[in-house]
Design a protein around this nucleic acid. Structure first.
Length: 966
RNA sequence: GCGGGUGUGGUGAAAUUGGUAGACACGCUAGACUUAGGAUCUAGUGCUUCGCGGCUUGGGGGUUCGAGUCCCUCCACCCGCACCA
C-alpha cells in the first residue's frame, strides 16, 4: 500500500471532527496551557505560505503540550474590522459584512486544510455584535476611569468627582493641563458642561482634537503610509494637516507601568527594546529662556541640565510657533526661505540628512544664569513634535550640536576641561565641570541636582520626565468599525448605559465620507438626530482584548467569566510577527492593566512569553535588459539601452511600444523616451531556474510558452544575448533577489496548491524544516521534495507497497531502541525550545537509521508514531488506527524517554596534535587518563605527527577530545 | 544619524555549555533496477592538490592547548526610527 496522503488526511480530519477531539473545557484537573496565535485579518487575497508559519509552530507546540498532559487552549478567530474591506466596499458597493464573510470562509478552508487543532467552537469575530458589545463595554470602563498618579492605577471617575466636590483638584494634577487648579467651591459652582469638560481631561478614554492627514479631493482622512510626498497615494491629491475631533486613550499615563511590566515578561530583548524606545522615557529638566527685547519665553527640555553653562546657541524647530515673531527684519527672508525648504522635506529625509543646514533668526536668548546672549537658530534636525520643539545646544557635550557649531562657526564654550579635545564633542559623564559658575568642580550628576534646585528657586524651570510616546488616537472617520457607545448632547458626551449595549453598526447607503471630515455614519439622518458619535473605533480596538474572550466566548452577561479568566490566566505563549511590536502589543498590555486595576481580571500582563516568527520571503528573478538584443526590421540586432540604469518594474514596461530608431535604422519597437530600461521581472520563473541563477534557453522558451502574454511582451521584440556553457548549452544568468511575498511581486505561493500536491503533513514539516522560526527565510519549492520523500520513507517502515502492513511483534534490538530514544530526547528538547527545524532533521535521522536496521517492530514503531503526531498528525492518525487503536492519536501520550537505552560506555575520541585532528581512537568512558595517554602515544599516526618529540602537554577532556601540544 | 539584527558549501541550514565545522535536506555527478521515470536504491559531493597535504565559518587582529562560538577593529547587507536633546 502506498502513502496516499489525500485519503489519509481526509479520513483523519473526519475522525477528529466526528469525535470532537479538539474541544477544550474550562474545567480540568490537568494543568492549563494557553497558546495563542496573532489574530488574522481576513484579507481578500487569502493565505499565502508565509502566513501559516507561526500557526504551524503553535499547532505543533499545542499538540505537544496536550500529549504532555496539559489542558491546552489554542483558539483562533478573526479581526474583521479594517480598512481594506471598507475600501473594497467603496469601490464595489459590496457590504463589508458580505465580503468579510466570504473571506473568512476561505481562510477557514485554508486553515482546516493544514490540519490545525483549533477548538472552533471558541472562534471569535470582532464585527460580531455579541463580541463588540463587550469592546464597547470596555471602552465605557476606560471612559469612566481616570489614572490616579499616587496609586499608579485606574480608578472610577465617581471617586474623583467626590474628591473634587470636597477638596478641589489640588491633589489630582490634570494630565491634560498641569496648570489647572480649582477648589471645591469652584468645582461646585461650575456648570455641568464645565465640569464634564474638566472630567474629559482626566478620563482614560477621552475626546479631544488632533491633527490628521486630510485630503480634500478624496474628502477623507489618510493614514501616514497613504501619503507620499504630501500627496495622496491614490490619485496624487494634495494632503494637508487638519484638526479634527478625535477620541484618544490616555496610554501615556501607563508609560511607567508599561516600562516596568517589561521586566516581568519573557519577550526577546529586541522586542522589549523597541517598546522601551517607543515609550521613550527621559529624565531631565525644563528650562525657560527669555528672548532679548521681547516678552517671549521659550522653554526647552534637556536631559543634561548639568551642561547649562555650555549653551552656545539655541535651536528651534522650523515649525515652532515663535519663529516668525522673533525673527529680525534682516533675517526674515532667509528664515522664510529655509522654512520653505524644510516644508518640502519629508520627516524621513530630515532624519537621514547628514548635511548640516539651518538659519539664524537674528534673535538672541538670555542665559537664565549668566545673562549671556545666545543666538537663536532654526534647523530641520529639531522636530516640533518632541519635547518643547526647542533645544539648548551644548556643542562641547553633544555631537550633533558640535557639528552644527563647527559648520556655522559658532564659538564653542568648553565646560568639560581636558577631556574635550576641540575636535569632537565629549558626551560621556565622567568629568568635572569647569567654566560653569556655581557648579564648577562638580560631577555632572551632582551638578544636575544643583541646577534644578536653583531653577526652582528662581522659578525658571523644574525637573521633568519626558515621554516620547503620545496618547493613542482611538477614532477613525470610517464606517467599518465599532460604534462608540456615546451620545452627544449640548456638547457633552454621555455614555450609554450597559443595558443599551450593543450599539449596533447601522446600515449605510454609501461608504463615502460624511460632511466636514466626518465618517460615513454622519450621512445617516436618524443617527445624527439621536446625537450618536459618528466616529468609529480603530482596527486595534477589538484585538486589544480578544485573548480574554477566547476564555469564555459565548458569555452573554460578561466579557468573560472571572472563573474562566482566573483559570486560563495569562497567555503562556503568544506567537506572531514583529510588526506588532509597538502597536497592538502596547495597546493590549494597557487594556489588560486597566481591566486589572478596575478589578475585572486577576493579572496585569496579557502575554507571559512572546515568540517572534520570521517572514517567509520569496526569490524573485530579473533579467537585465542590457543583455537583450532588440530585433530590428532589417533583422539586425541592437544592443538595447546600455545607457539606462534605473530598475524597471514590470508595470513600467509599456503595453504599446512606440516605433523609434537607433542609429538611423528603424526598429520594430522602442520604449517611449521617458521609460528607461533596467531590470525586467520574470514572473513565476522560479521552477525553470537551475543552479540558482541559470536559465537555459530551452527552459526560457518553455516558460514563455506557459505564459503566452509574456511571450508577446518579451520575446516579440527582445532576444537575450545567450551565453554558452561548457557543455555548449545556451543560457542567461538571471539576477536573484529575496523579496517579501506579495501579490504585486508575482512571487506568492498558495498553501492549497502545495497541499494538493504533497499533503498537509509534508507542508507542515517543510515549513518547519526551512530554518529557525524567528528568522526570515526564502521559500523554495524544490526543497519540499526532500520532506515528502522522508514521509514516504517513514510510511514504508509500516507499509510495504506490495505486501501491505509489515509491522511485526518481534522484540527490538539495542540499536533500534537507541535510535528511538535518542530521537525522543532530541525531539522533545527541540520542541520545547521552538527549534522545529532541527527536530524535523532528527525525524529524518531516525527514519534513516531504522530503515538501515530494517526495523519493522511495533515496540519501536508505535512510540515513533506518537512522537511524530505534533508534526504530522494525519499520517500519525492513520498508522495509529492501523496499529489497532480505536481512540484518536490526538488523545495519546507523548512517548517517554528512557536514558538507559542511549547510555554509551565508550566514545570515539578525536586525537589532535596542536589543535588539528589527526586521527580518532575509541576509549571506554571510564578509562583513566594515564591509560589513554599510553595508547595514544603508541599510536602510529600520532607517532608520525610527533616526529619523535615528546608532547609538552596532553589535554584530555572526558567525553570530548584529546589534544597533544608539542 | 541613532537603535536592533544577520554574515558558515552551488542552495536552505546544523553545531544547546569554547572541544572532530558543514548534521539533515535541496541541487549536482556516477551507477543499479525499470517499458518508462519527475518512483526507488547505492556511492560521491566545502575549496585546492595526481597524492601527502594545505586552506576554510564577511576581512584583519587578539585571548586560549583549542574559537563559527569570547574580546577588539573594520566591512557588507537587512529591519525599525520620531536626528529623542
Amino acid at each position: 500500500m502506498e502513502y496516499n496522503f489525500k485519503e489519509i488526511e481526509q479520513n483523519a480530519k473526519k475522525k477528529w471532527n466526528d469525535e470532537g477531539v479538539y474541544k477544550v473545557s474550562n474545567t480540568s484537573d490537568k494543568p492549563k496551557f494557553y497558546i495563542l496565535d496573532m489574530f488574522p485579518y481576513p484579507s481578500g487575497a487569502g493565505l499565502h505560505v508565509g502566513h501559516p508559519l507561526g500557526y504551524i509552530a503553535s499547532d505543533i507546540y499545542a499538540r505537544y503540550k496536550r500529549m504532555k498532559g496539559f489542558n491546552v487552549l489554542h483558539p483562533m478567530g478573526f479581526d474583521e474590522f479594517g480598512l481594506p474591506a471598507e475600501q473594497y466596499a467603496i469601490e464595489t458597493g459590496q457590504h463589508p459584512v458580505d465580503t468579510t464573510k466570504k473571506n473568512i470562509a476561505r481562510y477557514r478552508e485554508q486553515l482546516d486544510n493544514i490540519g490545525f487543532c483549533y477548538d472552533w467552537d471558541r472562534q471569535v469575530r470582532t464585527s460580531d455584535k455579541k463580541y463588540y458589545r463587550w469592546t464597547q463595554w470596555i471602552f465605557l470602563q476606560l471612559f469612566n476611569s481616570y489614572f490616579d498618579k499616587k496609586l499608579q492605577k485606574a480608578v472610577p471617575i465617581p471617586e474623583l468627582v467626590s474628591v473634587f466636590e470636597n477638596e478641589g483638584n489640588a491633589k489630582h494634577i490634570c494630565p491634560a493641563d498641569e496648570k489647572l487648579r480649582f477648589t471645591a467651591t469652584e468645582w461646585n459652582a461650575f456648570t455641568e458642561k464645565e465640569q464634564q469638560d474638566i472630567l474629559m481631561n482626566y478620563r482614560l478614554a477621552f475626546c479631544g482634537f488632533g491633527e490628521v492627514n486630510w485630503c480634500e479631493a478624496l474628502g477623507t482622512v489618510l493614514a501616514n503610509d497613504e501619503v507620499v510626498n504630501g500627496l495622496s497615494e491614490r490619485g496624487g491629491h494634495p494632503v494637508v494637516k487638519k484638526k479634527l475631533r478625535q477620541w484618544y486613550l490616555r496610554i501615556t499615563e501607563y508609560a511607567d507601568r508599561l516600562l516596568d511590566g517589561l521586566n516581568t515578561v519573557d519577550f526577546s530583548e529586541a522586542m522589549k527594546e523597541m517598546q522601551r524606545n517607543w515609550i521613550g522615557k527621559s529624565v531631565g529638566a525644563q528650562i525657560s529662556f527669555q528672548i532679548k527685547n521681547t516678552t517671549a519665553n521659550i522653554p526647552v527640555f534637556t536631559t543634561r541640565p548639568d551642561t547649562i553653562f555650555g549653551v552656545d546657541f539655541m535651536v528651534l524647530a522650523p515649525e515652532h510657533d515663535l519663529v516668525s515673531s522673533i525673527s529680525t527684519e534682516e533675517q526674515k527672508q532667509a528664515v522664510e526661505e529655509y522654512i520653505t525648504y524644510v516644508k518640502s522635506r519629508s520627516e524621513r529625509e530630515r532624519m537621514a540628512e547628514k548635511k548640516i543646514s539651518g538659519c539664524f533668526t537674528g534673535a538672541y536668548a538670555i542665559h537664565p544664569f549668566s545673562g549671556k546672549e545666545i543666538p537663536v537658530w532654526i534647523s530641520e534636525y529639531v522636530l516640533a513634535g518632541y519635547g518643547t520643539g526647542a533645544i539648548m545646544a551644548v556643542p562641547c557635550g553633544d555631537e550633533r550640536d558640535h557639528k552644527f557649531a563647527q559648520h556655522f562657526q559658532i564659538p564653542i564654550t568648553n565646560i568639560i576641561g581636558e577631556k574635550y579635545n576641540g575636535e569632537e564633542a565629549y558626551a560621556e559623564k565622567d568629568f568635572t565641570l569647569v567654566n560653569s559658575d556655581f557648579i564648577n568642580g562638580l560631577s555632572p550628576k551632582d551638578a544636575a541636582v544643583k541646577v534644578i534646585e536653583r531653577m526652582l528657586a528662581d522659578k525658571i524651570g523644574e525637573a521633568k520626565v519626558n515621554f516620547r510616546m503620545r496618547d493613542a488616537a482611538f477614532s477613525r472617520q470610517r464606517y467599518w468599525g465599532e460604534p462608540f457607545p456615546i451620545k452627544w448632547k449640548d456638547g457633552i458626551a454621555y455614555p450609554l448605559s450597559e443595558m443599551e449595549l450593543p450599539l449596533e453598526l447601522p446600515h449605510v447607503e454609501s461608504y463615502g465620507p460624511g460632511p466636514d471630515g466626518e465618517g460615513p455614519l454622519a450621512n445617516i439622518a436618524s443617527w445624527k438626530e439621536e446625537g450618536y458619535e459618528t466616529n468609529t473605533m480603530p482596527g486595534y480596538a477589538g484585538s486589544s482584548w480578544y485573548f480574554l474572550r477566547f476564555m469564555d466566548p459565548h458569555n452573554e452577561h460578561e466579557f468573560a467569566d472571572r472563573a474562566a479568566t482566573d483559570y486560563w490566566n495569562q497567555v503562556d505563549i503568544y506567537i506572531g510577527g514583529t510588526e506588532h511590536a509597538v502597536g497592538h502589543l502596547l495597546y493590549s498590555r494597557m487594556w489588560t492593566k486597566a481591566l486589572y486595576d478596575l478589578g475585572f481580571i486577576g493579572f496585569d500582563e496579557p502575554f507571559k512569553k512572546l515568540v517572534n516568527q520570521g517572514m517567509i520571503t520569496a526569490f524573485s528573478y530579473f533579467v537585465d535588459l542590457k543583455n537583450y538584443f532588440a530585433k530590428s526590421k532589417s533583422n539586425n540586432s541592437f544592443n538595447v539601452g546600455y545607457s539606462y540604469h534605473r530598475i524597471l518594474s514590470l508595470n513600467e514596461i509599456p503595453e504599446e511600444f512606440v516605433i523609434g530608431n537607433n542609429n538611423g535604422e528603424e526598429l520594430e519597437w522602442s520604449f517611449r523616451p521617458e521609460i528607461q530600461l533596467g531590470l525586467y521581472r520574470l514572473k513565476d520563473v522560479g521552477d525553470f531556474i537551475e543552479s540558482g541563477d541559470i536559465l537555459y534557453k530551452e527552459s526560457y522558451h518553455k516558460w514563455l510558452d506557459e505564459y503566452p502574454e509574456r511571450k508577446i511582451e518579451l520575446s516579440k521584440f527582445l532576444e537575450p544575448q545567450w551565453l554558452k556553457s561548457e557543455s555548449n548549452r545556451e543560457y542567461i544568468k538571471v539576477k536573484v533577489e529575496t523579496e517579501k511575498m506579495s501579490k504585486s511581486k508575482f512571487n506568492v505561493k498558495n498553501p492549497d496548491d502545495i497541499i494538493a500536491q504533497y499533503g498537509a503533513d509534508t507542508f507542515r514539516m517543510y515549513e518547519m524544516f526551512l530554518g529557525p522560526l524567528d528568522v526570515s527565510k526564502p521559500w523554495d519549492t524544490k526543497g519540499i521534495e526532500g520532506v515528502h520523500r522522508f514521509l514516504r520513507k517513514f510510511w514504508r517502515l509500516y507499509n510495504d507497497d506490495a505486501k501491505g502492513w509489515i509491522v511485526t511483534e518481534e522484540a527490538a534490538t539495542e540499536a533500534e531502541l537507541k535510535a528511538l530514544h535518542k530521537s525522543i530526547k532530541k525531539i522533545e528538547q527541540d520542541t520545547e525550545r521552538f527549534s522545529f527545524n532541527t527536530a524535523v532533521s532528527q525525524f529524518m535521522i531516525a527514519v534513516n537509521e531504522l530503515t538501515d536496521l530494517n526495523c519493522h517492530k511495533r515496540e519501536i514503531l508505535k512510540p515513533l508514531v506518537q512522537l511524530i503526531t505534533p508534526y504530522a498528525p494525519h499520517i500519525a492518525e492513520e498508522l495509529w488506527q492501523q496499529m489497532g487503536e480505536t481512540d484518536s492519536i490526538i488523545l495519546a501520550d507523548f512517548p517517554k524517554y528512557e536514558e538507559r537505552y542511549v547510555t554509551e560506555n565508550s566514545k570515539v575520541y578525536p586525537v589532535a596534535i596542536n589543535g588539528k585532528t589527526r586521527t580518532e581512537l575509541e576509549f571506554a568512558l571510564d578509562a583513566s587518563q594515564a591509560d589513554i595517554e599510553k595508547v595514544v602515544m603508541e599510536n602510529e599516526i600520532v607517532q608520525k605527527w610527533l616526529e619523535g618529540k615528546t608532547p609538552k602537554k596532553i589535554i584530555f577532556v572526558k567525553g570530548k577530545m584529546i589534544n597533544m601540544v608539542i
